[in-house]
Design a protein around this nucleic acid. Structure first.
Lengths: 232, 232
DNA sequence: GCGAACATACTGCCGGGTATGTTGTCAATC
DNA sequence: GATTGACAACATACCCGGCAGTATGTTCGC
């Protein structure tokens, strides 16, 4: 009966596992989530989880990495757009906030993962998995940082004295949906977009850009030249 | 030897316990923190912890409640100040951010506590301890909400369409120091104040108030009348 | 000599990890 | 085209360490 549930490519099982893990980790946090709980959430047992991942931490890292991938992809178009700095930043922010709302489980895990490097990570392999992740996070934030810096140099964006603090505050505002957003039955795509726009409006106004009195940018069609230049 | 370490009022032992617990909970999170770890952090053993608190959750709740108390006190002066809405809000924000930086351990625990009501809290007593805490959190945010609303009605503050989202974004920006701030050896009170001011400047600008082009408010001396009116 | 303020010793369970069984599938061989 | 065996994709059973909670000392001050 369970056999030959055909038309399920093998990658989907791993995907299903990642989603289940993300939801469990999000609901209770890493430490409080048992492997059995993740398995039960899929209607399976431990065996299935340990068939794909050698340890709980590896599973967590996979979820975390997926989260990183999601935000990178969500902001890629804005970052690479051939527009003014403020418009690029707006598009990046919209992409980021959209990802926070659409992939909330992954995003919350992603966030917990970053907070996790407090005290000693035992094995060296886990330690440099963490280090790799930190570097990716830095690279991600640097994208925002660079665009903001560009806009500030052009006099379009206003930043404060410890520049890093301005960025942190900005990013924190963009992260906020992971805290309060929860999908309801009545959320249409339009409603969801309105929420995202309000978050972005606030954050951009914090940088001195008044989107209410300005046309919201749209993602320009990418030329072939831009398509090939991703992140090499 | 350990006996008669005189001049230690008994309340200080509990205080010391709360601080140790806050630091441990902050470093590893609730689930990953063992009672033994908290005790070791004080150079004591489990017996001492369980002498003051019947369970781990009760200890956590005490830390959480203390965190709530801290933010309430930190924003009290601004909230009760006899000033315009924008100035009151600025003072509240400064107080809030200051608390985030000076009592980071308590604040992070406080935040984890709020996120914790995801799935079932077993005992009914714990459930309504949680409910009480949620109500306090709501009361706290309502203070900000009310002042922002007041300023918006006066046309001094600018808010967006789902008003709740504007508030959430604003609060999220004010919370951000718990993520990035960590006390260094070289942080003078002045430097710390500069950081706080930058966070508040960004957040207030998000509400349309340009503090760079405006005099920062100062806490007016409280009259006797105001002193008595706290939160009855 | 009684109780507060702890420390020490012990129990029971939960959960990460492992070792081993079971089932379906596919490929090669006859 | 039936047989076999090898392997993927799990499930089951078990082991054991860590930790919440408890029960029982121990010491000091009054």
């Amino acid at each position: 009966m369970t056999a030959n549930q055909n038309a399920e490519p093998q990658t989907d099982r791993l995907e299903e596992l990642l989603i289940a893990a993300a939801q469990c980790f999000q609901a209770r946090g890493y430490a409080a989530t048992s492997i059995d709980a993740v398995a039960r959430h899929m209607g399976a047992t431990k065996g299935r989880v340990y068939h794909y991942f050698p340890s709980k931490m590896d599973l967590f890292n996979a979820v975390r990495e997926r989260g990183m991938q999601i935000v990178f992809e969500a902001t890629e178009a804005g970052y690479c757009a051939n527009l003014a700095a403020a418009d690029r930043l707006t598009l990046m922010a919209l992409g980021h906030v959209g990802a926070m709302m659409r992939h909330r489980a992954f995003m919350q895990v992603h966030r917990e993962g970053l907070q996790m490097h407090r005290f000693g990570n035992a094995t060296p392999e886990q330690h440099d998995a963490m280090a790799r992740h930190i570097r990716q996070r830095d690279a991600y934030e640097r994208r925002f940082r660079d665009v903001v810096r560009l806009g500030a140099d052009n006099g379009v964006l206003r930043v404060g004295e410890p520049f890093a603090i301005t960025i942190q505050s900005f990013m924190s505002a963009l992260h906020s949906p992971v805290t309060w957003y929860s999908e309801r039955a009545d959320d249409t795509p339009e409603k969801l977009e309105q929420l995202a726009r309000e978050v972005v409006r606030f954050a951009m106004l914090g940088l001195g850009v008044d989107l209410a009195a300005r046309r919201w940018p749209e993602i320009p069609p990418l030329t072939d030249a831009l398509t090939d230049e991703g992140t090499p």
